[in-house]
């Protein structure tokens, strides 16, 4: 049942021009960043060779591009997630799901999975771009995989937050702006503190992503992302159930 709903979501995404536009633009920007980093790398390659432990292709090109893509996703995901529930409620199509023998959990997980598959496609395309460097050099596969995992977890967290915001309102635009606000808040929450031991660092999305970006897969960071996803999905389910109870 989850997969039926996910497949429908994915289909609706690909029918709407918005998804194609976002997919196209992100791909364009990622490719442009990728090529400009590659260009810079080729320019300084000879000097780098002189260093005792020169940074590799992956470190110089792939990691920064992934870092920048995470920020792009922060802008793009709320636009993709905004209509998940908000539009269903506004068009009153939600009653098809509610009167079908499907639980709230299945509805929420199906919607989440649909969006996640779309985002994984995006992340996968970026991975292919990185892998293309194999054609002319050697890659640090561990670093590339850590970055892919980090970006996928990040995208999933964005999707969960966006989905929850979409459950709160009937207006897709409100859901998009709300989702953008929450994500940016989570991204920058530790900006205000200079203290390196401040607990705010624990909340920051950026801080946890940085570890993956450096090639470090830490269970603490994994747990952070998984908890964040689970928490927002649970909140979404509760919120939908509340609708049925309170009306």
């Amino acid at each position: 049942m989850i997969f039926t709903i996910a497949a429908k979501e994915l289909r609706s995404l690909f029918i709407s021009p918005l998804a194609w536009v976002i997919l196209g633009f992100l791909q364009l920007i990622m490719a442009w960043m990728f090529l400009s980093r590659l260009d810079a790398f080729l320019g300084v390659q000879s000097q780098l060779m002189a260093l005792p432990a020169p940074p590799g292709l992956t470190e110089v090109i792939v990691a920064p591009v992934f870092g920048a893509t995470a920020l792009l996703l922060l802008l793009a995901v709320p636009l993709l997630s905004m209509r998940l529930m908000a539009e269903e409620r506004r068009n009153q199509t939600i009653s098809l799901l509610l009167s079908a023998p499907v639980s709230m959990t299945e509805i929420v997980l199906g919607k989440f999975l649909g969006l996640l598959l779309f985002l994984l496609l995006l992340v996968g395309l970026l991975g292919l771009m990185g892998a293309s460097l194999y054609a002319g050099g050697s890659l640090d596969l561990g670093l590339l995989l850590a970055n892919l995992l980090g970006l996928a977890l990040m995208a999933a967290s964005f999707a969960a937050v966006g989905l929850f915001l979409s459950c709160l309102t009937q207006q897709p635009v409100v859901a998009a702006i709300g989702g953008f606000g929450v994500l940016l808040g989570l991204w920058l929450v530790n900006m205000s503190t200079a203290d390196p031991d401040s607990p705010l660092h624990l909340l920051s999305l950026l801080k946890h992503f940085e570890a993956f970006n450096k090639g470090l897969v830490d269970t603490a960071d994994l747990a952070y992302f998984l908890l964040l996803i689970a928490a927002f999905l649970a909140l979404s389910i509760r919120r939908l159930d509340g609708d049925r109870l309170r009306g």
Partner: peptide, 19 residues
């Protein structure tokens, strides 16, 4: 779930996905 499987419902506004 068992009960809803035996139900068909057309609300006031038909829940149609226009796309």
């Amino acid at each position: 779930k068992q009960a809803k499987a035996r139900l068909g419902y057309l609300p006031e506004v038909p829940p149609l996905y226009k796309e």
